[in-house]
Amino acid sequence: MSEWKNVVEEANANKIDKWAPVLAHLTIHITYHTGQILYIRKLQGMWNPKDGVEG
């Protein structure tokens, strides 16, 4: 992710436009898995609302 971040920061607008579908997919994919991790942590009782989002 850090490498992608650096590449995107250094890219010009034409490259960003060309990569837009891939970047959108990558963002959705990572967000989905982050949600899975949070859900599992909450189910296991490993989520402290004081340290993160309540819910």
Results as ranks from 00 to 15, higher is better:
residue 5 K to H: 13
residue 11 A to W: 04
residue 13 A to W: 06
residue 30 I to H: 06
residue 37 I to H: 00
residue 20 A to G: 04
residue 25 H to T: 11
residue 53 V to W: 10
residue 47 W to Y: 09
residue 2 S to K: 03
residue 36 Q to P: 01
residue 6 N to H: 11
residue 22 V to W: 15
residue 16 I to Q: 03
residue 50 K to H: 13
residue 27 T to W: 00
residue 46 M to K: 10
residue 25 H to Y: 14
residue 14 N to E: 12
residue 20 A to R: 14
residue 46 M to A: 07
residue 54 E to L: 10
residue 42 K to P: 03
residue 2 S to F: 05
residue 51 D to G: 07
residue 37 I to P: 00
residue 23 L to N: 08
residue 19 W to C: 05
residue 4 W to E: 15
residue 51 D to W: 13
residue 54 E to Q: 13
residue 7 V to E: 15
residue 49 P to G: 11
residue 7 V to I: 08
residue 35 G to S: 05
residue 32 Y to E: 00
residue 5 K to E: 13
residue 4 W to R: 13
residue 45 G to K: 09
residue 54 E to N: 14
residue 18 K to L: 09
residue 40 I to S: 05
residue 38 L to Y: 00
residue 24 A to H: 08
residue 32 Y to W: 03
residue 16 I to R: 04
residue 14 N to L: 03
residue 2 S to H: 03
residue 34 T to V: 04
residue 27 T to P: 00
residue 49 P to S: 11
residue 29 H to D: 06
residue 54 E to I: 15
residue 38 L to N: 00
residue 20 A to N: 11
residue 43 L to C: 09
residue 34 T to Q: 02
residue 9 E to K: 11
residue 3 E to C: 09
residue 11 A to P: 02
residue 14 N to M: 04
residue 38 L to Q: 08
residue 42 K to A: 07
residue 18 K to N: 07
residue 29 H to R: 02
residue 27 T to E: 04
residue 24 A to K: 10
residue 27 T to C: 00
residue 40 I to Q: 05
residue 6 N to A: 14
residue 12 N to H: 05
residue 7 V to P: 01
residue 50 K to Q: 15
residue 13 A to N: 11
residue 15 K to G: 08
residue 18 K to E: 15
residue 43 L to M: 10
residue 39 Y to D: 06
residue 49 P to E: 14
residue 10 E to P: 01
residue 28 I to C: 03
residue 17 D to Y: 05
residue 54 E to A: 12
residue 13 A to S: 11
residue 25 H to V: 04
